[in-house]
Design a protein around this nucleic acid. Structure first.
Lengths: 342, 342
DNA sequence: AAAGCCTCCGAAAACCTTTTCGGAACGCCG
DNA sequence: CGGCGTTCCGAAAAGGTTTTCGGAGGCTTT
């Protein structure tokens, strides 16, 4: 744990120091350290050694100032505390981290003023690009400020179709969910959705209905909209069992709703999955694996979405800007609530 | 939504451009924009107008290069996906965001190599300070590299007592939890803890036992260590009811464990909170508010911890480094599982 | 031995802003 | 009218790195 030289306050070593110690010019030192040619092996060795000795670390500010590229990107979220920003952020950080990019994180707290402020700060720091992560899949207004770097919208698409947005495929998710239930032999499928104010809820309904139609089936009862929470799942399941006792599968708007549904089913003596299969959305591990039985869910692949956004931004940084809305496929994670455990 | 001038690729306006447009020198332009005196009101006005017209945004790189301070800090987490980094990160971002600080986010994925890499990158970007967020409250080795900027360890303390660490008060949390249960009139209190490999679990036990001792009580049964999950809560509660049927309160190692305990209690016909009171730790909203009844829990105040870390770093940046381990108080959030709802 | 080529190195410019310091203009007092 | 103080402005340096270009020296070829 020897904390080598670098005493606090001692100016960090600069290229000039390295050059002096190695007995060469700064130009040569720079070339040696950056692997440029036109430097003899012996000289390069001397420079490297000097740099190591001074624990020299090149000043990215100076480099960025000169190059016009800083190797930084801004990640602007409106809702860091939320459930969805984080995996996206993870994926993005992941994709960038491999290379030499560093990520500025900003949380606008859903406030337009604060957002503008952060964008200004990021631009003044000369980020090479921006990822804007929404807190729901509803379209959001594009960035207000004039931005001269590429921008990718993740999760929530921009209202401007000229922007590049990467969003989860909620329609596909609804479709896949129903297809899975049908594959499990279910034909009397009900849907307890989430909050009707969210396009995620409505899109999943759209997909689910489409898949039912394709299979020549129709939904048991009406789509039940409510909230995203457990309490709603319990209440809605209770009503559902009263009105449609013959139901053999319940597709739920979220994993939390599904948890509530599972509770009610157990209390009403229905076995899961033998009598009724249950599915959720989002594949929130703590919800799905804690449930009895463990909950089948549709994973929206948010990390993949984040990585996709990062890669798209990466490309946009040196090439022309792609446009439009791109969706990321999701996938069904099968657990005990739809398939008896092996 | 007019996206003003700034066409892609057009060099961003520089201070020189502003000065030229305003018909003054760069020095004057700088002074005018930064509110320095020795500039006439008229000139200042002209400069401001020119800056606005060019949507000039000062280049932080150049400024940082000159000033030796960049207004950036690094936030190094070992486990972004985890439950605890995020609120801390929120709090830190919050505390900084008010000022002019920007936050570099790095996730080392618990890998020492990657951590070193990120630290290098951050230092090369000349951050003014570093916050290192652990993934559990167990002490962690200090940063390997020689770091000449202040560092604050959050959540997980550094093993080196010369470093400044800010951690949640788990002993106090255990104590407060038991005190709350006693205040609710409970005397036969059991403790179903979490994973014994975590100091958080052991510290909470320590605090709980101390509070019991102070009240002249002793624990019902032994401390039951297991995992942090719901399944463990269900299993442990079942065993507990078999062996100690007269128990009137169960303190649980986490909210998830408490959820499992609640499930088992309900199935075994015990009313909560009338027959048995239940408490968890962490106050994870989705767990506590979805439970029946809603779950009383000890909030570890992680956002406050994050803010504290940020403030401490802030101070350390221009003053001498504080040292040692500082704890952040937690607080009991009372809900229906210990107190009948009003 | 002269010419030419290749290899290696260094001087200097460029990136953009802030700050210091000197100079210019102007008004006031003696 | 000269001297002085005040007010405002501009030239220049500094900060650290990269890149370009020219120069120096050594080697080969004729």
């Amino acid at each position: 744990m020897a904390r080598p030289p670098a005493p606090r306050g001692a100016r960090a070593a600069t290229l000039t120091d390295v050059a002096r110690l190695a007995g060469v010019s700064v130009a040569t030192a720079s070339k040696a350290l950056n692997g440029r040619n036109h430097v003899s092996a012996a000289t390069r060795e001397r420079v490297m050694e000097a740099a190591a000795q001074l624990s020299f670390s090149p000043n990215s500010l100076a480099r960025g100032l000169l190059a016009g590229r800083t190797g930084t990107v801004g990640l602007l979220t409106s809702d860091l505390v939320g459930r969805f920003s984080l995996p996206i952020l993870m994926g993005a950080e992941d994709a960038f981290g491999a290379g030499e990019m560093s990520v500025f994180l900003c949380d606008a707290r859903g406030d337009a003023i604060r957002e503008r402020h952060h964008v200004q700060a990021l631009l003044s720091r000369r980020v090479d690009g921006l990822i804007v992560v929404g807190s729901s899949t509803d379209p959001r207004p594009p960035l207000a400020a004039a931005v001269d770097v590429p921008v990718v919208y993740a999760y929530a698409p921009s209202e401007d179709p000229e922007d590049l947005s990467i969003v989860p495929d909620n329609v596909g998710a609804g479709r896949m969910a129903v297809e899975h239930l049908i594959a499990c032999g279910r034909t009397r499928i009900a849907h307890i959705s989430g909050h009707p104010g969210y396009s995620a809820a409505r899109d999943r309904v759209t997909g689910a209905l489409a898949a039912l139609g394709d299979a020549g089936l129709s939904l048991v009862g009406e789509v039940a909209y409510g909230t995203w929470e457990e309490g709603w799942g319990r209440a809605a399941a209770s009503m559902l069992l009263d009105r449609e006792p013959e139901v053999d599968a319940v597709l739920c708007g979220s994993d939390q709703v599904a948890r509530g549904v599972l509770d009610t089913l157990r209390e009403r003596g229905r076995r899961v999955p033998e009598d009724v299969a249950v599915m959720g959305f989002d594949d929130w591990q703590v919800m799905t694996t804690g449930a009895r039985p463990q909950l089948t869910s549709v994973d929206m692949n948010l990390e993949e979405l984040g990585r996709g956004a990062a890669r798209a931004l990466f490309e946009a940084i040196d090439a022309e800007h792609e446009r439009g809305v791109r969706t990321v496929q999701c996938r069904v994670v099968v657990r005990g609530s739809t398939a008896p455990e092996a």
